[in-house]
Write a protein that binds this DNA or RNA. Structure first.
Length: 292
DNA sequence: CGCCCTGTTGGGGA
DNA sequence: ATCCCCAACAGGGC
């Protein structure tokens, strides 16, 4: 469920409800959530502290508490954070008791979601530095930036987009959408993209993410906002999960492939497949001028 | 009914 | 650097 637009939608909905409140208690029903840290250790660090700010980096949600204590949460595939939900809500894993009598419940049928601790600004920065590349919605993220990140990479461009250490927050769905918008085949080598393709792809990533945001993160059927409401309306993907349907741009049939181990949807007329995997650096070099 | 496959994520080992 | 598998569960196809 949560890629960048979904997590950001949750953050925006929740921030006004939790910022300024005190995290009075944290009841961890499933120790796996914060493993290998013991639930009591995590609780001791966060309980009683005020939430100064709810932040997001990539697909991570950060409760920035007093004294530079950061509770860093990941919803993984099926996690949800619900505000004052029905007590009978299934799959409850963690309960955040907030001052003012409100509560936040983390529910996650698959139990992949995690909560981690960073003590101090340095530890917080290090946590993300070793996991995440730049934010794709940052104005600095453009074709030139993407080109620099992709340089020399021979892995398929889809694997490149999914690598959080290169670009933060793009998941399987938005990767397909971005590639379709940019008319780039997912199997193409990331480092082999032309300058124009890098420009198109950076724009495609941005537009795909913004389309998801505009839809309130209502991408997958079971996406839920913190108030428990399912997406107000479903965001329609251009290609993702549309195998067998007609490409909205050219009418050719959308096909499903497996790239980087994930289901991948593509219009192979709009996104022409790379001719052939280059086997050896041929003698003919396209000597580029101005190459350092 | 039951088996098999797939899946929105990230980490670890080969 | 890259690929495969795994975590734990739901849901769909057969």
């Amino acid at each position: 469920m949560p890629e960048l637009p979904e997590v950001e939608t949750i953050r925006r909905g929740l921030a006004p409800l939790v910022e300024g409140r005190r995290l009075e208690r944290l009841e961890i029903a499933d120790p796996r959530w914060c493993a290998p840290l013991a639930p009591d250790e995590l609780r001791a660090a966060v309980e009683g502290r005020r939430v100064e700010r709810l932040d997001r980096r990539g697909k991570w949600l950060v409760f920035d508490l007093e004294d530079e204590v950061a509770l860093i949460c990941h919803l993984r595939m099926t996690g949800t954070l619900l505000y004052d939900p029905d007590p009978a809500e299934p799959y409850q894993r963690v309960r955040f008791a907030l001052s003012g009598g409100h509560e936040l419940r983390f529910c996650d049928p698959r139990r992949f979601g995690t909560g981690e601790l960073a003590l101090g600004a340095t530890a917080r920065a290090a946590f993300f530095a070793e996991r995440l590349g730049p934010e794709p919605l940052d104005p600095a993220f453009d074709g030139a930036a993407l080109r620099a990140l992709a340089r020399g990479r021979r892995a398929p461009v889809k694997a490149f987009l999914l690598d959080q250490r290169r670009i933060a927050g793009v998941g399987n769905i938005y990767a397909d959408e971005a590639l379709f918008r940019a008319r780039v085949h997912p199997l193409r080598a990331a480092g082999a993209l032309s300058r124009a393709q890098c420009d198109a792809l950076a724009l495609g990533v941005r537009e795909a993410l913004e389309a998801g945001l505009a839809a309130g993160g209502a991408t997958i059927d079971d996406f839920r906002r913190p108030d428990g409401v399912y997406g107000a309306f479903q965001h329609e993907f251009l290609v993702h999960t549309r195998a067998g349907e007609a490409c909205p741009r050219c009418g050719a049939e959308i096909v499903k492939l497996v790239v980087a181990g994930r289901g991948t949807y593509v219009c192979e007329r709009c996104q022409p497949r790379p001719r052939r995997v280059r086997r050896r650096p041929s003698a003919s070099r396209a000597g580029r001028s101005g190459r350092p």
